[in-house]
């Protein structure tokens, strides 16, 4: 009886050595939902492959590649100069949008106003033209490139921001803002639009007069833009190479449209 169990254990673990067809992607929570969909399209056409996508933030994407824990990393920014040993492929262009609950009457904000809200110089919605209620400020956790982008746009350091709630993934931010009409947050425009389409009570604010829509991202008039990249080291196994090539293909482009991000062409 015991020996049967041991045998079963051995066979069970042996099976996983067919990991050759597996690709693990980790990193940005902005890129993750897009890659999840692209991956499932890929798997339909390549039934033997197993693609796994996990979030954790752009920083995790870089670390896992460095430590060899994943095959492809996802980051929602460009590579920094000290990361030039990594190769990258841009799969989409996205913007960073400030989100409010759809019941919120405010539709546009200036950079200075956002700065003041996040440093608690402005603390009440009535100072922005809405009702007399305190503003609940939602901010991202460290390690997220969305956070770094936001900080560099505002010209602030993280220690100057005084948030009420800290969230990790984009989706968490959206969830928090849709749960409370007096909150303000910032997420990827693609993620916001995706959820708006899915009937979330959310809206994007016009930044310095520029609306957060597709046209303004394409003509680059929207102030906060970034590229969504897949990163990898030199030697890629075949399934990873195929996946990377796939991200420029027609099925992938349809996915990009569904997620409201722009393809790099």
């Amino acid at each position: 009886m015991k020996y049967l169990l041991i045998l079963a254990l051995i066979t069970f673990t042996q099976h996983s050595y067919a990991k050759k067809n597996q690709v693990l992607l980790t990193g940005s929570s902005t890129v993750a939902p897009i890659m999840l969909d692209i991956a499932s399209e890929f798997e339909k056409l390549n039934p033997n492959s197993i693609i796994e996508v996990q979030t954790g933030g752009s920083t995790r994407g870089i670390i896992d590649i460095k430590r060899g824990l994943s095959q492809i990393g996802m980051i929602s920014r460009a590579l920094k100069p000290n990361e030039n040993y990594l190769k990258h492929k841009t799969i989409a262009i996205d913007g960073l949008g400030v989100i409010l609950h759809s019941a919120n009457k405010v539709t546009k904000l200036t950079k200075q106003q956002i700065k003041d809200i996040y440093t608690r110089e402005i603390t009440n919605w009535k100072d922005l033209g809405w009702i007399d209620k305190p503003i609940t400020v939602v901010h991202k956790a460290e390690g997220r490139s969305t956070l770094e982008l936001f900080l560099s746009y505002l010209g602030l350091k993280n220690s100057q921001i005084k948030p009420h709630l800290i969230i990790g993934d984009n989706e968490q931010g959206i969830k928090t803002v849709t749960g409370n009409p007096y909150t303000i947050g910032y997420v990827s425009i693609g993620a916001a639009n995706y959820n708006i389409k899915n009937k979330a009570p959310l809206k994007l604010v016009a930044l310095d007069g520029v609306k957060a829509n597709r046209a303004n991202i394409i003509n680059k008039s929207y102030p906060i833009l970034r590229s969504l990249n897949l990163i990898y080291t030199g030697n890629l196994a075949e399934p990873s190479r195929k996946l990377l090539a796939f991200t420029a293909g027609p099925e992938a482009l349809k996915v990009l449209e569904r997620h409201y991000v722009i393809s790099p062409q």
């Binding site: 673990t13 042996q14 067919a18 990991k19 197993i50 796994e52 996990q54 979030t55």
Partner: peptide
């Protein structure tokens, strides 16, 4: 054990 969601085929899967 991670966040994997696929049907595991062995103990080494997430």
């Amino acid at each position: 054990s991670g966040y994997g969601v696929k049907m595991p085929s062995s103990l080494l899967d997430s």
